[in-house]
Design a protein around this nucleic acid. Structure first.
Length: 423
RNA sequence: GGAGAGAUGCCUGAGAGGCCGAAAGGAACAGUUUGCUAAACUGUCGUACUGGUAACGGUACCGAGGGUUCGAAUCCCUCUCUCUCCGCCA
């Protein structure tokens, strides 16, 4: 969430940033917020002035009572009647005004970093680098949805029976490959200095707000009926919310956490032919890295995270590319996002397998996550990225590494899998 | 699920209508002293909004939200959470 002081002192920059993010009516909304805030301040001031007077009288009465001047005290009481009405009226109006400001403020996305390219859709994203080669086959390669059937390792029909579409069942070597990837990714992260966290996978409303899923993406999350808890769409939510309402010291930073969780996404209305098989699921596993940084270090941290994620893809031997997302394709809370896409050898297309973002103070402001610098508290910067999301990695491995009679497991995974080929 | 107890600052813990943003101790930080370590002494030691160039003020916050009162950490109501005992249970 943007702060009012920032918007006030950087009004033009705010409007320009919102436009880059393709936010409609930027000028009007910004103007509206600033006006609402003036109203709020004015009402608050009036309420507080009345309160001040009332408190002073109350103190006087206290003094009179103590010295036994009961009659004088009684007389004073009458003076507060009018003030009480004022306090109530202005207080309520100020509260409402604050809510009005807040209601508009939460709808504003984060402003994009200056390096974010202009653009509207995924077509306008900037390809910053491509690694590896497109795999070639001397036979007609099968798409992963055919391979998983051929080798009986992932079963959509079974998942459909016990839950519904988009909830696959991993079986045998399919299940073991999943487990191998999870362990491999976690071990790599720990080697890189990340601290492992196993968070709850249901979260409350405050947590959803803290990282920016609520109220924006209400419809994307599953919610439990009895308790109103949300199933996490990503481990980013619980792991970042660990630091909600926290004031860190400089010594605590940087914080580098990693966690593996299942992720749940309703993906309402986004079903279609291009999302077959593992390309888009309602439940999937992901290893997420989360960092909390001093503001001046966050962009360096973002590059480190990007490099780290690329290292994983290189170790798995996957042909991939890195995109710098354009303003129109970026997420609500992000200031700069790199997407990593792995090549899918049979679908002949790129699959997004990681998204690494710097949120600057956007989440920290919602979370009230601050650090003490020279006695003053300043908002931290938060970052996160997938390292990595499993299903599309599995899809790429299956498709890219297929031979006529089996699938070769990347070497780094063999010790984790306990087998080197799926036949 | 049933019965009881409780929720105060970084921690422990006092406070039981006005003098309480809140005692005291500990931790932490800074300084003094000191062969080193330690100890001792002194000081600092919440957050947010708001007025002001600043100095310095104002307001709110003692789990959350309401209420009573001139005045609430303190009284009343609702909710949440924690602990103890019983029940159930991976």
């Amino acid at each position: 969430m943007l702060t009012i002081p920032f918007i006030r002192t950087n009004t033009e920059q705010t409007i320009a940033g919102l436009k880059k993010k393709r936010f409609a009516d930027a000028e009007a909304i910004v103007k509206q917020i600033l006006e609402l805030d003036e109203v709020r301040k004015n009402l608050l001031q009036q309420a507080e002035q009345a309160l001040e007077k009332s408190n002073a009288i109350a103190r006087e009465i206290g003094g009179l009572m103590k010295s036994g001047q009961t009659q004088e005290a009684e007389a004073k009481k009458a003076e507060t009647a009018e003030l009480k009405i004022k306090i109530k009226e202005f207080g309520e109006a100020a509260k409402k005004a604050e809510q009005d400001v807040q209601d508009v403020l939460v709808t504003l996305p984060n402003l994009p970093h200056s390096s974010v390219p202009e653009g509207k859709t995924a077509d306008d994203n900037e390809i910053t680098l491509t690694w590896g080669k497109v795999p070639s086959f001397d036979f007609e390669p099968l798409a992963h949805w055919d391979l998983i059937k051929k080798y009986d390792i992932i079963d959509f029909d079974l998942g459909n029976k016990i839950t519904g579409a988009g909830f696959p069942v991993y079986k045998g070597k399919g299940a073991r490959l999943q487990r191998a990837l999870i362990n491999f990714f976690l071990d790599e992260a720990i080697k890189a200095g990340y601290y492992e966290i196993q968070p709850p996978i249901l979260i409350n409303e405050d947590s959803g707000f803290g990282t920016g899923q609520l109220p924006d993406k209400e419809g994307q999350m599953y919610i439990t009926q009895a308790e109103g808890l949300y199933l996490i769409p990503t481990a980013e939510v619980p792991i970042t919310n660990l630091y909600r309402d926290v004031i860190l010291t400089e010594k605590d930073l940087p914080i580098k956490n990693v966690g593996h969780t299942p992720c749940f996404r309703r993906e309402a209305g986004s079903w279609g032919a291009h999302v077959r098989g593992l390309n888009r699921l309602h439940q999937f596993d992901k290893i997420e890295i989360v960092q909390i940084r001093k503001p001046e270090e966050s962009y360096q941290a973002l590059e480190e995270m990007s490099t780290y994620v690329q290292g994983l893809l290189q170790k798995l031997g996957l042909h991939y590319r890195v995109l710098r997302l354009c303003g129109g394709d970026m997420g609500f809370a992000s200031a700069l996002t790199y997407d990593m896409e792995a090549w899918s050898g049979a679908q002949n297309r790129w699959l997004e397998v990681s998204s690494v973002s710097n949120f600057e103070t956007f989440q920290a402001n919602r979370l009230k996550l601050r650090m003490k610098v020279d006695g003053k508290s300043v908002l931290c910067h938060t970052l996160n990225g997938s390292a990595l999301a499993l299903p599309r990695i599995v899809a790429s491995i299956l498709e890219n590494n297929q031979t006529k009679d089996g699938i070769k497991i990347p070497e780094v995974l063999v010790p984790y899998c306990g087998f080197s080929v799926i036949q």
